[in-house]
Amino acid sequence: MTRPDEQAETLPWAGAPVASQEQFLSPEADHPNQGKPAQGKGKLFVAVALIVAAASLTWLVVGGVEQNLVYYLTPSELTAKGDDAIGANVRLGGMVAKDSIRWRPEETELKFKVKDHGAEIEVHASSIPPEMFREGIGVIVEGSIGSDGIFQTRRLMVRHSNEYKAPGDQETVDLDYMSQTLEDNGT
């Protein structure tokens, strides 16, 4: 009788015996514990896992990607919408304008301006800003603009650039990495 490992295939980097290719591919060849199809509870578990995976994928694609193809509007785009934009829930993204930050920690009240090349919008927030928040950094705020032209936000996010510098390095100043569009993304 030939023992199976005498005709076994080996890994390029290994010497340990394994199943021969014929036995590997034959439908009967299966590990008594590992290879058999999932049964009963096991099969149900796998089915549930697959359904959950499929459902969350659909949710991500439909709910996430579709809404987020344009993740945020620039101040120019929001201004151009005029009265249509009033009250609508949007994300606004731009650079924090120089000398515009007014932070009153006692009242947790933060006022600043978000700008791009063409427009500037006053933003009011009532939460503690992330520690990265400063003049000239990119921010994304969620909320809506009022008829007074002031954008009220409940969620302030910082979007920093792709610069990771050490003390003493030259840093790029006055970057505007927030108003990139599909056309000029090569920069």
């Binding site: 199976p4 490992d5 076994a8 890994l11 290994a14 340990a16 015996p17 394994v18 199943a19 021969s20 036995q23 590997f24 034959s26 009967e28 060849a29 299966d30 590990h31 008594p32 590992q34 290879g35």
Partner: peptide
Amino acid sequence: LQQNAATAMSA
């Protein structure tokens, strides 16, 4: 592969 070897054994 070690498990495959056991598989081949039982088959």
